[in-house]
Design a protein around this nucleic acid. Sequence first.
RNA 1: GGGCGGAUAGCUCAGCCGGGAGAGCGCUGCCCUUACAAGGCAGAGGUCACAGGUUCGAUCCCUGUUCCGCCUACCA
Length: 800
Amino acid sequence: MIPRQLEKTYDPKQVEERWYRFWTERGYFHASVDHPGEPYSIVIPPPNVTGSLHIGHALNNSLQDMLIRWRRMQGRNALWMPGMDHAGIATQNVVERQLIAEGSSREALGREAFIARIWEWKAKSGGTILQQLKRLGASCDWDRLRFTMDEGLSKAVREVFVRLYEEGLIYRGERLINWCPFCLTALSDIEVEHEETKGKLYHIKYPLADDPSRFLTVATTRPETMLGDTAVAVHPDDPRYRDLIGRNVRLPLTSREIPIVGDPILVDREFGTGAVKITPAHDFNDFEAGERHHLPRLKILDPHARLDPTGLQTAAVEQPIIDEVQLLPVAMARPKIEHALQSRGLLVAVEDHKMAVGKCYRSKTVVEPYLSPQWFVKIQPLADPAIRAVEDGRVRLIPEGWTNNYLGWMREIKDWCISRQIWWGHQIPAWYCRSCQSEAILPAADGSKSFTITSAAKPIVSRTAPTHCPDCGTHDFIRDPDVLDTWFSSALWPFSTLGWPDQTPEYKTFYPTSTLVTGLDILFFWVARMIMMGLKFTGDVPFRDVYIHALVRDAEGQKMSKSKGNVIDPLSVMDQYGTDALRFTLASMASPGRDIKLTEERIEGYRNFANKIWNAARFILMNLEDSHENAPPQEPAFADRWMLSRLNRAISEVNAALQRYRFDQAAEALYQFIWHEYCDWYLELIKPALQDRQSLTASHTRRMLVESFETILRLLHPFMPFLSEEIWQALPLKTRFEDSLMIQPYPRSRPEWEDKEIEAAFDILTRFTTTVRAGRSLLNYPPGKQLSLYGDSKNRDTSE
RNA sequence: GGGCGGAUAGCUCAGCCGGGAGAGCGCUGCCCUUACAAGGCAGAGGUCACAGGUUCGAUCCCUGUUCCGCCUACCA
């Protein structure tokens, strides 16, 4: 049976799929609640159902798999919980685009049929990423695969929503929110990406109502919104304007007069002209100022961010102006307004101005502040415990440098807008009685079947559809059409996937989870909210450690994106260099505090490393005898003792590094030891001893070779699972071990292997011995002190 | 505007508690030495961004400057 004939170069294609199937068929990935080991659990950051594997996923999931495989080999009851996210807007957009290509639309289909269509799509082409994760070697417990729209998870969502509502931590109200005019839905603050943009600052003269010869000049970046102004603010202590407070200005282009108010919060005397227009319905600051001064809110934009004719009428805009700008998108209306002001001599100046423009993180459309009835989570009562949990170390952020970021953000956190005006997602469990709330339920302006539920409507929030109205007893309801922010269900992920709200054995065993591995980009979207929800509903933190890894960038340090054409596709990397090479590369580059600039050369280098190991295996297999080795134990030779001492050091370093999430250091230690110590020196040094195959020395050396190499393979396995398994299976160890490397014990450091004297002697020798060949004669001396290397099986490093 | 991180060999980066300047790739020279040319051996290559300070001694600690990147923010 041995030596086995192996090819000169390692060919991952021959290997990977075979072993992955082997592992799954034997159920090695399955974590049982009955397992005697101490639980170790990780929930996967659920990839979008629309997603396909990009390099960031590859990094994120490789690291998780390393942790899981390491812990599993240590004897822990290791669960890696896999799943997918329904990804509300992203998924809806995908299917909607298909419909449009077919000449249809979601409106034409209607809500139910549209949702059915998405499920259909999901069944057919959703979740390709899961197959790709398998190629990566991910040892997830696939039996437990969850989806955020599962019945179980939906139940958790309803439970949380209803309980928060009943406690007054969820409310509905008309507020100014971030609105995407393309997606036609509300967004939360963190779904808006700010981008520095060159804009203009327009200085506009507003004539005083009682003295048209005098003007107040305001500065604005958005002149078109002036049509919705309901006041002008100045600083109450500003001597230039103090006397004007309380008087009115005539708002140009309209027939309205609006008051001049004093507002020290809104107005910075130094900026612009020291006078600010107030447009409460279309600007966040102005909204708040409007509340302070009890100003009306005039909404002049429609949901598409076009000038709304009805709104303009209400705002008493002059008819010729209405005719000119109605139904124009804001960007097109702006020059018209600018021109109108200019022709009346009211435009004093236009200067360049830098500003941050908010864009939708999905569609990249410019986001509008928009007044509409929405649902909110009152966040402060949830944030406080989440702040404390990090402050007192119950949740540890790694690297800890992010802790301050987290705390800073959490202390400034604002209420979370959780309603979205889309169809795909968890529909809000709120109903309205048609008979007693009829005044608050308005038919939609566009004449469609839909309707608008004003903020005055009184919702009935319930886990299931209500049977009768508690107020009037009738049973004619409409359900709130909104769905929840995708991140609402994600926030429950660590416990909803384990069966909560039921007290399942899985929940009791694996919650709180041990480690969360995530990128910085979703620290606030996701991590912070999981901590808040976890503490609120389970009374415990959702995870102990949060390992935050870097972003993967291209060789120029640019964020990878399809539009830039600079993506490194992990799938083609795996095709070309093998999964193990990719995994090892990502591990080696995962040093904290720096983004990863991935280059193909680096991957190639670790492909070579895999090949090096492969050839070391060939060398060992070529030297083995067909018969079993039955030589009596003998003390190891000088070279053996040196190698064992170094191996022991590598074992310590790898374990310590993994313990601290220093994947880069673990990879470095493995690389150094295996290549430059084990291969470059040890394998060379023992060659003479192997020459006389019949000799006792050769027999002992062979045994030492197999033993040490087997340990190396176990040490390597979390990083290069496929290669290590392939080689391990070829080694003649079956009589002693079970059938897969991945359930073998992970090496632990063995103090009796440490031998500082030998190491020092070796260092001195190699300083004067420039070639391996010369070193050989010196180092292959007979053994010095006795070492019980083989011992009996009890002494193996199998014990926990 | 506030905060964080980075600047070390041609390139990509590592350097944990202050004392040796390192790795991979690339480059040069010699080797198909019976595991591996995706390899071996030998080598060249650095004012550790800049300016001060602390110290017997600074890539490392402190201050400031410059340049990059990221996060965050309502200056109209």
